[in-house]
Nucleic acid binder design. Structure first.
Lengths: 244, 244
DNA sequence: ACAAAAGTGTTTGTGTTACACCCATGC
DNA sequence: GCATGGGTGTAACACAAACACTTTTGT
């Protein structure tokens, strides 16, 4: 996202993409959220616009790559947000009031501001990444970027919190159906780790033995060697996801 | 949809809505498709643009009302179509070539044409209507408008056939989940009629007795009087959908 | 030997499919 | 009575949850 010249018809007008990027770490489902480089504590989902010669999926990939350094990411549309009153106006007004000089430094003129504060329709994408593969990078208007546990989100601008909740609902619906959970895990893992991931996503416990059966019956994992942790118990097998 | 002045910023640029309107009649699932009022056999889904002060859902409702005369319709987003090469260009070029004078009559100038032939991102909606309540109305660029059985579609412009197939897939996934089948039926109906509807949608037979149980177990129908058809068999009960 | 956790098997319950039967209606 | 199609009950089966037991590991 470049604030300096979005109005030059390089991008489709009044249409944006917002990305809910899910990761998994410390038995918690997390979302990647940048904080904007302005006074006033503005957190906003990674977002961007669609270039004229670019597929919307490509645009989403570009936005994701910008923040994560990853090119090959699982992602999916989940909803379009398009109420008439949906605009950056409220939050931009507060931002402008709190950052009188900064905007000049950015070279933001009134025209650009006008472009940005119009009504925007936004396509919501959610993405699943292996959190340890991510190479965190600030976007050019970010002060910082950070993973937040799904139950400890900061206060986000506009309707971004609603977006995260709808993305999570969609993820829950699609998880088994599309067998996409493994995008959140490293290359190899134990069944217990899969179970903990499921428990983090659905926020409820699963019975160990039945869970094991359910997962293995899907025939999508291949069993590798055992994993000796040094603990005084039976060593679990390590598995890898058979990509189709 | 008004071709005469869409470029005046009244609408959001390069963003459109396409509607797949499902109806049910003669044991067949049907889709409402207008034929454009130009030489060359152009069939296109009911479509339109989004006014600046209008929710996208409202815009979809407006487009639906225009063709069906119905205000209260079940509808749902199902996908955004947004590849970079997605534009009216190919089909408009053919249309212009086949209709040299007609476009002048319409007052279509090159600017408007340019507006229309740019790359467009389109939000797909599907709608379910009681086909007998529909008051068919041509849009102002339609020559005619007609219901087509899902397996006897005409050749549609752009990616509109793909849209219909994806809409149908989504409908199949959501039908039981969201209990929306009754939007396709008249006020009252028999279980057999529901079964025939399901068979039309999923294109496969259902066992009569089990189907009855499955539907009644959902507790969303209320049983009314019997329906005497004059046939030499037991009269079926008539049901009504309990709207929540 | 023992505790801890992994892995496997068995029983129970639930819901779906298949089969059989009964009921109402008009000729 | 009988053919026709609607409505209901039950047995068979498959799937999922709950319970129990065995195996492996390090101390």
């Amino acid at each position: 996202m470049n604030l300096k010249s979005p109005r030059e018809q390089e991008y489709i007008q009044q249409l944006s993409i917002d990305c809910v990027i899910f990761g998994y770490e410390d038995e918690q489902l997390k979302v990647l959220i940048p904080k904007l480089d302005f006074t006033g504590d503005f957190w906003a989902l990674p977002a961007g616009f669609i270039q004229q010669e670019e597929d919307i999926d490509e645009a989403a990939r570009r936005i994701l790559a910008e923040r994560t350094g990853l090119a090959d990411i699982y992602l999916e549309q989940f909803r379009v947000f398009g109420t008439a009153k949906r605009s950056n106006k409220t939050f931009m007004e507060r931002l402008v009031a709190l950052n009188p000089t900064k905007l000049d430094d950015w070279g933001l003129d009134l025209n650009t501001l006008g472009w940005l504060t119009r009504r925007f329709v936004s396509i919501g994408y959610y993405a699943l990444v292996d959190i340890h593969k991510v190479n965190l990078q600030k976007g050019n208007i970010d002060a910082s970027i950070q993973w937040y546990p799904i139950r400890e989100l900061p206060s986000l601008i506009m309707d971004h919190e609603e977006m995260i909740h709808i993305a999570l609902d969609t993820l829950r619906l699609n998880l088994d159906q599309k067998l996409i959970a493994y995008n959140l895990l490293p290359e190899t893992f134990t069944i217990k780790e899969v179970q903990e991931l499921y428990e983090a996503i659905y926020e409820r416990p699963f019975a160990r033995n039945n869970f094991q059966k359910k997962i293995l019956d899907q025939q999508v994992l291949e069993r590798l060697e055992k994993k000796f942790t040094g603990a005084a118990n039976k060593a679990p097998y390590v598995y890898r996801w058979k990509r189709y």
